[in-house]
């Protein structure tokens, strides 16, 4: 999925569980969360086309009603929780505690995995975002990330 987003030239930053795992968290996560550049028309169009190609449909809802996966839908829905051919994907235009893509990108770092280069939210900002959501289910993830930050401070 990450390779697909990169090759479609979508400007995005990975946030959430996958970003946590890339920082060293051990929690299993089912979905990829991204914040995309909603102000950049080329990104909005490329992302909409890619999601349509991946047959994206809202997650956890019964299929049957029409769902138009296009740029208009992206612009109208600040949060899309989707299931796709490639896996589950949450598409966000901003995150609590940090802000929109520009703010998220300013607190991100580049990751290179097997030739695929993309940005992930840095550890301190990921912790800030998890705190801001205040969801009980994030408590364990938050503690894990705080341990990782402490470890990285000790090492440096």
């Amino acid at each position: 999925m990450l390779a697909g987003l990169v090759s479609a030239k979508v400007r995005f930053v990975v946030v959430g569980g996958v970003a946590g795992a890339l920082h060293g968290a051990e929690r299993v996560t089912n979905d990829l969360d991204i914040v995309y550049d909603a102000r950049e028309p080329s990104t909005v169009n490329a992302l909409a086309e890619l999601l349509a190609r991946w047959e994206a449909y809202p997650r956890s809802v019964e299929r049957g009603l029409p769902f138009l996966m296009d740029a208009r839908t992206l612009r109208a829905a600040p949060v899309l929780t989707l299931t796709t051919r490639e896996g589950d994907l949450d598409v966000l235009d901003r995150i609590d505690g940090v802000g929109d893509y520009a703010a998220v990108a300013a607190h991100s770092q580049l990751v290179d995995t097997s030739g695929v280069r993309f940005r992930i939210l840095d550890l301190p900002t990921l912790i800030r975002a998890k705190r801001a959501t205040g969801r009980p289910k994030d408590r364990e993830a938050l503690l894990e990330l705080e341990v990782l930050r402490e470890e990285s401070r000790r090492r440096s």
């Binding site: 809202p58 956890s60 809802v61 009603l65 769902f67």
Partner: peptide, 8 residues
């Protein structure tokens, strides 16, 4: 479409 997005 908008309904499904919000519901999900």
């Amino acid at each position: 479409t908008l309904h499904l997005a919000r519901l999900a």
